[in-house]
Design a binder for these strands. Structure first.
Lengths: 235, 235
DNA sequence: ATAATACATCAAAAAAATATCAAAATTATT
DNA sequence: AATAATTTTGATATTTTTTTGATGTATTAT
């Protein structure tokens, strides 16, 4: 697995800039290089990097002011890389909003580990797992169902049943199969449970409960959740 | 403003332990000290600390295994504090899940700055210092809650619970998730605590406690803080 | 068409989950 | 050390959900 994130290097020393670019590419990161604060700001806005590596001593100003500027509008991880091995500088940078401070000369491998650590923390994305079918959307994380964008009140069993049906849309699901997965192993022959809950669900999701468009009956076999075009969305 | 967070120190050297405790107290943190992995685990589960400071060399095992154990169930910030100034140790620790690595001898002020930096990042759930929902406004800096512009008297646990609910407005929060974050890892199954405190909060914030408009129950799942005019921040 | 079978519907009883209250235990404050 | 505040615990009331049973309607086979 290659990381593939874009890292913006802000460094005026060509030798270090080159070394970093090569090391980061080797590990799979994409990089952009900015040699002063002005171009760093431009790159930050236009390139949308995942992380900044910032040298404090830049030709057109102090790196700390850049940190402050960026922190006003972004929580992007910033690692300071500086020759200034001075306690006050370290503290000031961290309190400005930097996420880490590495002093030169530095170990490339350690820097890479610190990049991984910093990115790991900030990239904890919320996985949104939803399924939509016509007017019904089920959110498996929030455990909620929307009908025409209105929240449906379902009991736990109703929710479990609908979730199972929607996950197997357009398939005929035999009674016993539904009972086994929704209620559990001992309930395969409790047909009446299934009828009661199918009825309850239809009342809640069908426009016309007597002419169901979602949950159709496959007599003496089971039920089918009909959905012509259901797309899966996960980000 | 005093920080007031609890920091768990895991350190077998008494001198360093004492020094750290004093420095951290001076700055306003509460601390607990654990001298081995076994008691560290116990303290972690029962005390619900905001951050761990961990020495790698402990009498009953290597600190890295503790990091791995904790990372299986928690994203709590961990700062490693070690005499081992060895590139491999640093990389291994960070890749295990540590958030920072400081080598001994260390500057207390720098360590404090790194604690602030780490906490800032992990506590940054709310971008704003205050959050308003209908007639309720919570101020995370002052740790105050206003209902119709009148200051509410809340106990610490009531405040923590409400803060967590409001930070996650309109989402269904499972019982265990609430218990884990508000009370700590060892309290996931103390449902009665949750019921008692939800009840206490409703009495204080709901106009009609029997028909709650803010804190609604999601039977057999959890609770939801409902707030119509609250922007969803998820992509 | 008629009987037999399968399914739908409704409502009640039973069980489970939640709400509420208050006392006991703990912790913090004076 | 005494007092006050908060948390924990337990007992009981209330609500919600599941289970059960009774009855009506549709479908299928003869």
């Amino acid at each position: 697995m290659k990381p593939n994130e874009l890292i913006l290097l802000i460094e005026d020393d060509d030798a270090i800039g080159k070394l970093l670019s090569i090391s980061l590419h080797e590990y799979g990161y994409k990089t952009r290089l900015a040699k002063d604060i002005t171009s760093a700001k431009r790159e930050f806005i236009t390139q949308n990097p995942a992380l900044l590596i910032l040298d404090l001593g830049l030709p057109d100003g102090d790196g700390k002011t850049l940190i402050q500027t960026i922190r006003k509008e972004s929580k992007i991880p910033i690692i300071v890389l500086s020759a200034r091995n001075d306690e006050k500088e370290i503290i000031a940078s961290l309190d400005c909003g930097a996420d880490d401070y590495v002093t030169k000369p530095f170990s490339t491998k350690e820097l890479l580990a610190r990049i991984r650590s910093t990115l790991r923390r900030t990239q904890q994305k919320t996985v949104h797992d939803t399924l939509t079918c016509k007017d019904i959307t089920i959110d498996f994380i929030k455990k909620e169902v929307l009908l025409d964008n209105v929240l449906l009140r379902l009991t736990p069993t109703e929710y479990n049943l609908l979730a199972f049906l929607m996950q197997n849309a357009n398939k005929v699901l035999p009674h016993q199969h539904i009972l086994k997965t929704v209620w559990g192993l001992g309930y395969q022959h409790q047909m009446q449970y299934l009828r009661t809950y199918i009825n309850a669900l239809r009342k809640k999701i069908e426009k016309n409960s007597t002419r169901p468009e979602y949950i159709t009956t496959e007599s003496s076999i089971g039920y089918r959740f009909s959905c012509l075009s259901h797309k899966e969305e996960e980000q």
